[in-house]
Simulated assay, not measured.
Amino acid sequence: MKSLLLVTTIALAAPAAFAQMNHGSHAGHAMADAPAKSASPSEGTVRKIDKAAGKITIAHGPLENLSMPAMTMAFRASEAAVLDKLKVGDKIRFVAERVDGTFGVKQVEIVN
């Protein structure tokens, strides 16, 4: 039992120790300074618009930047004005994002 506790303690402490060792290295800063991967636009069809909730339901193809397969799901609109220019059935090109666990859309463009 003591050996299991020791192994668990070492396993939990190792990442923190490693992070402290690399804190001053150039490699550690390169990771922190790396630019975020640019999200490529996805395509979909508007299925539902809920202006009161600020959401839009989209049947979409794969979302490469979020590693998600094709499906139908609701997204929070980045701006309320986006919901005003869309209607159910519109074919759109958009950028999906996940911020603080919430899925949203930005850069929405009607393509039909």
Results as ranks from 00 to 15, higher is better:
Ser3Ala: 02
Leu6Ile: 09
Val7Thr: 03
Thr8Asn: 00
Ile10Met: 10
Ile10Phe: 09
Leu12Val: 08
Leu12Phe: 13
Ala13Glu: 04
Ala14Glu: 02
Ala14Met: 15
Pro15Glu: 09
Ala17Glu: 08
Ala19Asn: 13
Ala19Arg: 02
Gln20Thr: 08
Met21Leu: 15
Asn22Thr: 12
Ala27His: 08
His29Phe: 10
Met31Asp: 10
Ala32Asn: 06
Asp33Ile: 08
Ala36Gln: 13
Ala36His: 07
Ser38Lys: 13
Ser38Trp: 06
Ala39Leu: 08
Ser40Ile: 11
Pro41Val: 09
Pro41Trp: 04
Glu43Asp: 11
Glu43Arg: 05
Glu43Ile: 06
Thr45Ala: 06
Thr45Lys: 05
Arg47Met: 14
Lys48His: 15
Asp50His: 09
Lys51Trp: 04
Lys51Arg: 15
Ala52His: 08
Gly54Pro: 01
Ile56Thr: 03
Ile58Ala: 04
Ala59Asn: 03
Ala59Val: 02
His60Cys: 06
Pro62Tyr: 06
Leu63Tyr: 07
Glu64Pro: 01
Ser67Ile: 04
Met68Pro: 00
Met68Leu: 14
Pro69Glu: 12
Met73Leu: 11
Met73Cys: 10
Ala74His: 05
Phe75Thr: 01
Glu79Tyr: 11
Ala81Met: 10
Ala81Arg: 08
Asp84Ile: 09
Lys85Ile: 10
Leu86Tyr: 07
Asp90Phe: 05
Asp90Trp: 05
Lys91Asn: 14
Lys91Trp: 12
Ile92His: 01
Arg93Tyr: 04
Glu97Arg: 09
Arg98Gln: 13
Arg98Trp: 00
Asp100Leu: 14
Gly101Thr: 04
Thr102Leu: 14
Gly104Gln: 09
Lys106Thr: 09
Lys106His: 14
Asn112Gln: 05
Asn112Gly: 15
Asn112Trp: 07
